[in-house]
């Protein structure tokens, strides 16, 4: 469903993505893990072209990712994205945040969209907050709304860019629970995260990145228990204390 071939990217002199090859099948959950600055967020963001690439190919359902215009927008509409900093629309209510995509992009009837949005908000457990604005919600609640906002577009795949990194510890699980539920329902997911428990429970594959390269990939339990590379061993050692 998502395929990257020989993807290269520089930020000025910095070579952030070095010949990345990655394939995510329909229904697969792939976790990108690695030290900060390793390029995992950038990699995740290239998949819907929030970051451009210098060379290589990105294929969505076998077709090249469009580079601009309506085609790019249409492709983005099919891929959900959840950000580290939630990025809920600050001037809209929670309900309007969720109906924004269906109404403005898919031109759905507002009444219908609202009914479905309420259903989604119930599912992620924040239906009572529908009339509030984002700043009135906790981080965990905001992130669950962000997930509902993406789901309202009926995406065929979802990208999660460090979805729990900006959250207070006691709110991490409420977001992870929603993500686990999605994974179990068969959503195709690419997740940048340090949450080992999540990776072990639901991911099909872990990709370990460092210095812009994928150094190791494989079964999550295998990776966490018996990392093959020295770099991965060091990294896992350093995050163990948490």
């Amino acid at each position: 469903m998502i395929e990257l071939r020989h993807v290269q990217k520089h930020f000025g002199d910095l070579h952030v993505l070095k010949d990345i090859n990655l394939k995510v099948e329909k229904g697969e959950v792939v976790v990108l893990i690695g030290p900060s600055g390793s390029g995992k967020s950038t990699l995740c963001r290239t998949i819907n072209r929030l970051e451009t690439i210098d060379s290589g190919e990105i294929l969505i359902d076998g077709k090249p990712l469009p580079q601009e215009g309506k085609e790019l927008a249409a492709t983005r509409a099919e891929i959900g994205m959840v950000f580290q900093s939630f990025n809920l629309f600050a001037h809209k209510t929670i309900l309007d945040n969720v109906t924004m995509g269906p109404v403005e992009v898919l031109h759905r009837d507002r009444k219908e969209a609202e009914a479905e949005a309420m259903e989604l908000l119930r599912r992620v457990g924040v239906a009572e907050q529908a009339k509030k604005v984002p700043a009135q919600l906790s981080g965990g609640q905001q992130q669950r709304v962000a997930i509902a906002r993406s789901l309202a577009m009926h995406p065929k795949a979802m990208l999660f860019d460090e979805p729990t990194s900006a959250l207070d510890p006691e709110m991490i699980n409420e977001v992870l629970d929603v993500m686990v539920g999605l994974a179990r329902e068969g959503m195709t997911m690419v997740v940048v995260t340090h949450e080992m428990s999540f990776a072990r429970r639901v991911s099909d594959r872990v990709e370990f990145m460092a210095d812009g390269q994928i150094l190791e990939e494989g079964d999550p339990n295998e990776f966490f228990d018996h990392p093959k590379t020295e770099r991965a061993r060091e990294f896992l050692e350093s995050i163990k204390g948490h």
């Binding site: 929030l50 983005r76 509409a77 959900g80 629309f89 924004m100 403005e104 577009m153």
Partner: peptide, 24 residues
């Protein structure tokens, strides 16, 4: 992030400006 979130919902640049950026 507001712009990025709107773009990733599939809004075109013009719509992002009108619906998300300008009102704020």
């Amino acid at each position: 992030g507001q712009r990025e979130a709107a773009l990733s919902l599939g809004m075109t640049e013009g719509k992002v400006l009108r619906k998300i950026i300008l009102p704020q």
